[in-house]
């Protein structure tokens, strides 16, 4: 049982040496004694988490895979259909639309959000009086629900709304921003980008404030201009923040639902804006094709997993940790 014992010395050493070598020291068993059996305490503290992990996340992921191989309307017992759901999905025009929209949404909104957030973070990274009040204006969308925001933007995008009003000032003809299948998704992306900005700005701001001013001083001495300082100091030193924000944005973008539900409900215009999660919701919880919905869920899971892994693989090439 001594393996489990937390030697007091071990803990101190771990802190001192950064965690690596402490466990080796404990394993020698020099500090066995009064704290044997701490795993029982660990079990007590972790009991809710372990149950949750098994019943609410790990178990259901496996269950989804099983269900995706069945046909089930929740009335009759499920019947095994093999990979039929997957092959059917790949021939389903609505699913393919959802898939294409999700990729488009992600491919546009992630880079757009990051670039704008970086610019904004640099703009509000000032040491001036009252800056926290100014930042509050920029941060406000952070706490808003996508549902309420989508309704507000639906009105801004409406034929008589703000965008057409402003556009008419500049001689632009009125657009049907949301009802036009070509403009609908880009319009939703603009809205989501606005709403997602504050979180990214906050992360970048923390990153910017972590850059030691000596670096800037050093390149200034070398005669570097504003752009060179940005290119050779800010960007490289900010890559960890960019990486971190990127992964969050990527995962979030693949899961977009609320604004699609409000703006596309019920799937208008002609399903032009439906996304994968909307498809899952509609298939599973409106039409009760649980097998098909599970298969779509697994496809979503695989897409997110593959992109996350690829993204992490690229890390060595462009992320510089100080």
């Amino acid at each position: 049982m001594s393996i489990f014992s937390l030697a007091r010395t071990g803990s101190v050493l771990r802190r001192a040496r950064g965690g690596a070598s402490a466990s080796a020291l404990e394993r020698t068993g020099r500090h066995r004694g009064p704290r044997d059996g701490e795993w029982r305490w660990a079990l007590l503290f972790l009991a809710p988490t372990l149950i949750g992990l098994a019943v609410l996340s790990a178990g259901p992921i496996i269950a989804t895979l099983g269900l995706s191989l069945t046909s089930w309307d929740m009335l009759e017992p499920p019947t095994f259909v093999g990979i039929d759901n997957y092959t059917n999905l790949l021939g389903d025009a609505r699913f393919l639309t959802a898939l294409r929209n999700t990729f488009f949404y992600t491919a546009v909104s992630v880079p757009l959000g990051l670039i704008l957030a970086l610019g904004l973070a640099m703009a509000v990274n000032q040491r001036i009086r009252g800056i926290s009040w100014i930042r509050t204006m920029y941060f406000l969308p952070l706490v808003t629900s996508s549902t309420a925001i989508a309704i507000v933007w639906l009105w801004m995008y409406s034929p008589t709304g703000l965008f057409n009003n402003l556009g008419s000032v500049f001689g632009m003809s009125p657009q049907r921003w949301i009802a036009n299948p070509t403009l609908a998704l880009p319009s939703i992306i603009v809205m989501s980008t606005w709403q997602g900005l504050p979180a990214n700005v906050i992360i970048f701001l923390a990153g910017l404030q972590g850059i030691p001013s000596e670096y800037y001083d050093a390149v200034s001495v070398d005669g570097a201009g504003r752009f060179a300082r940005f290119r050779y100091v800010t960007v490289p030193l900010l890559t960890p923040s960019i990486f971190f924000t990127g992964i969050l944005a990527l995962i979030g973008a693949f899961q977009v639902f609320d604004q699609i539900y409000v703006m596309a409900n019920p799937g208008k215009p002609g399903g032009a804006t439906i996304t994968l999660v909307y498809f899952i919701y509609e298939t599973g919880f409106r039409n009760f094709h649980m097998g098909l919905a599970s298969a779509a869920s697994w496809i979503l899971f695989l897409i997110v997993a593959v992109f996350t892994i690829i993204y992490f693989r690229t890390q060595n090439r462009w992320v510089h940790y100080q």
Partner: peptide
């Protein structure tokens, strides 16, 4: 993505 566990 938590939608994966939605159905189960």
């Amino acid at each position: 993505p938590f939608q994966v566990v939605l159905v189960p």
